[in-house]
């Protein structure tokens, strides 16, 4: 009697758990346009990361730019592109910022989303503490190369260059170590465990300022031309369910970016405390050659082509509209005859 009760309770618990999982799914699905329109302010949950790259988001936050467009932003910060992606997949956030490769990996696996805005073009480079390493061929079997994570922009850039120099995209799979930027920078400078770090500002600047460090290869060499280091991604649910909020999001990001580009000194003063840097240093970083905050997308298709050929993804978008929302498709255009310069920017050269 008691035993069967236990069994029944266990089964009930199990079914309850399943029900909860379903329930969770359906509530988020029920976030209908009407329901959202009823709300005075439209909530938008935004997933970002920390760093110089995310300056426009910080400006938007400080200047309450989203609020100006009637949005009520909820800011969330994650440790990696993959974490941002997982937040989007689980329905925890509506829009998120990540590198093109993590975005494409998700798209390839069927994540219901597209790119909404370009975000920034920044210098990315492979820095080494070993003076004898001049190019990728100089790495020895035991040499470790740190990068933020597998499947990150840095990983794909390394694969691109490996293919170019050694003829194999996967030549360095056994060399990579996944480490957060600050840890990797410390390890590189103290020569503990790693010989090179594929990194971004401000770590590039920090690392190169130490004696004995030098740059092995930069992003433009790997990719062939500049590309968006980060893009803003919006889920289909958000985009379709709430077109007005989507439009406001694009505008708010644009305004924040425009403000940075026209007020770099003020931006530096505003953000210096956030980064724990002096105003001068922040300004220097914001205006470092190659830094470009722009909503224009660069290189979306180029990454897709390479990643599909190298086996990192299975599908390749037939056209930009497969992976970008209409505002970006309109932005890039579709020139009859020869592709336009901005179209050409979507591919590798």
């Amino acid at each position: 009697m008691r035993r069967s009760l236990g069994v029944i309770m266990c089964v009930a618990l199990l079914l309850g758990g399943l029900g909860l999982a379903y329930g969770g799914g359906s509530t988020s699905a029920a976030r209908s346009p009407q329901a959202q329109a009823q709300a005075q302010e439209q909530e938008i949950r935004i997933a970002g990361q920390f760093g110089l790259v995310y300056a426009p988001l910080m400006v938007a936050q400080k200047h309450k730019i989203f609020e100006k467009y009637g949005l009520k932003p909820v800011w969330k910060e994650y440790g990696s592109g993959a974490a941002v992606r997982e937040a989007l997949v689980s329905g925890e956030v509506d829009v998120g910022f990540m590198g093109i490769p993590p975005f494409l990996i998700g798209w390839d696996k069927g994540c219901p989303w597209k790119a909404a805005v370009g975000f920034c073009v920044v210098p990315v480079a492979l820095v080494t503490n070993n003076p004898s390493i001049k190019n990728l061929k100089d790495f020895k079997p035991g040499d470790k190369i740190a990068l933020p994570s597998p499947g990150s922009v840095q990983h794909i850039l390394l694969a691109m260059q490996a293919e170019r120099e050694l003829g194999s995209a996967t030549a360095f799979e056994k060399h990579i170590v996944a480490m957060p930027h600050p840890d990797a920078a410390a390890a590189l400078i103290s020569k503990k465990g790693i010989v090179a770090h594929f990194t971004t500002p401000p770590y590039i600047f920090e690392e190169l300022s130490h004696p004995g460090m030098h740059l092995v290869v930069d992003d433009v060499t790997c990719f062939g031309q500049p590309f968006s280091f980060n893009v803003g991604v919006a889920t289909t649910r958000f985009h379709d369910g709430n077109p007005v909020a989507y439009a406001c999001f694009v505008m708010a990001i644009s305004e924040a970016m425009a403000w940075i580009n026209t007020n770099k000194k003020e931006a530096a003063a505003l953000l210096a405390p956030e980064f724990g840097l002096t105003m001068e240093k922040t300004y220097r970083y914001l205006t470092w050659p190659g830094m470009d905050y722009t909503t224009a997308p660069y290189g979306l298709m180029g990454f897709a082509d390479f990643m599909q050929k190298a086996g990192y993804i299975k599908n390749v978008p037939r056209s930009l509209s497969d992976i970008a929302w209409e505002n970006l498709v309109a932005f890039v255009g579709d020139r009859a005859g020869e592709p336009s310069p901005i179209q050409q920017l979507q591919f590798r050269r």
Partner: peptide
């Protein structure tokens, strides 16, 4: 957590890598 090193990783690294490529 620290992602070991590619060629030398164990099962943790295996999972870690699959996570980043969304191979659930």
């Amino acid at each position: 957590v620290f992602g070991a090193s590619g060629g030398e990783g164990g099962l943790g690294w295996f999972i870690y890598k699959r996570r980043f490529f969304m191979e659930i």
